[in-house]
Design a protein around this nucleic acid. Structure first.
Lengths: 141, 141
DNA sequence: TCTCCTATGTCAGTATCCTTACAACCAGTG
DNA sequence: CACTGGTTGTAAGGATACTGACATAGGAGA
């Protein structure tokens, strides 16, 4: 028993859950969910990535990712060829509309994140980010 | 914008997702999910709490909580009277078996949390907890 | 007392995600 | 060449959580 205080794990869950909720609220006017945003966000960082790799980055299964991608394709935010150049992996790309939607979403998400960090001194923000990264490394991420 | 570095929000999601996964793995031998554990954990902190209040503490809906409670009642880990003393709120309580299961689960969960924090200097652990709490406050938790 | 208002429990339907399973494709090794 | 292992895409089914809606019980205020 190391703690009388609420555990770090509980605080982590609480913060993540609340952040997710606020992001969902912020993105609602755009008709995007947090999952959709995460998908588009990653797609900009790694254009042409396969759906399976995208799923790993966003912590969902390939199956869930394919459902999400199909929704995004139907809305013309994402494009995928129907045939692979080599192998089975189909490259996934942002469309122009997808890039615009991501730009709009990014503004809203950045606002939520800034609100979340508004209670911390600037130095503590980087300390928080480093602490979280250390946790991820320790858990074998 | 503010970031060439991955955002704090992303690190938060990554850490929470990985912690959840490791907890799920650790609790599997006991036949408990993380949701079950969270429920039992809160029930020890606030014995006799109503299901609706318990749901708010654990970030799920009343409906989901009632499903979970029914599972825990079927396994004799939790007990609820069928009639309320006053009003509609039914007090929820840990059984002796529930307390034992929670004890066993707590050991495993503490192990995971210690592993997560093993990469941080001791002082940084409390700083991390305080930073997360500040985030929760800023988001209106 | 009567009337809102809120909170709780519950039911039905929906949505989302996961688990399991299988086929296609590439790379490495015997 | 044949075989094994790993990765990708896809489909079917189940588990879990959420939204919407309703009846009930108690408290606050006119």
């Amino acid at each position: 028993m190391s703690n009388n205080v609420p555990s770090v794990g509980y605080a982590l869950k609480q913060a993540q859950s609340l952040l997710h909720l606020r992001m969902e609220e912020a993105l609602k006017p755009l008709g995007l969910t947090v999952s959709h945003y995460s998908c588009l966000y990653r797609l900009r960082l790694e254009p042409g990535i396969s759906a399976a790799a995208l799923a790993r980055r966003t912590f969902v299964t390939r199956q869930s990712m394919n459902v999400m991608l199909q929704q995004l394709i139907d809305r013309d935010l994402v494009a995928r060829p129907t045939q692979a150049d080599s192998g089975r992996a189909l490259p996934t790309l942002l469309t122009a509309a997808g890039a615009s939607a991501l730009d709009a979403a990014q503004v809203l998400v950045d606002g939520v994140e800034q609100r979340m960090l508004s209670g911390l001194p600037p130095g503590d923000t980087t300390a928080l980010a480093r602490g979280l990264s250390a946790c991820v490394s320790a858990l074998g991420g």
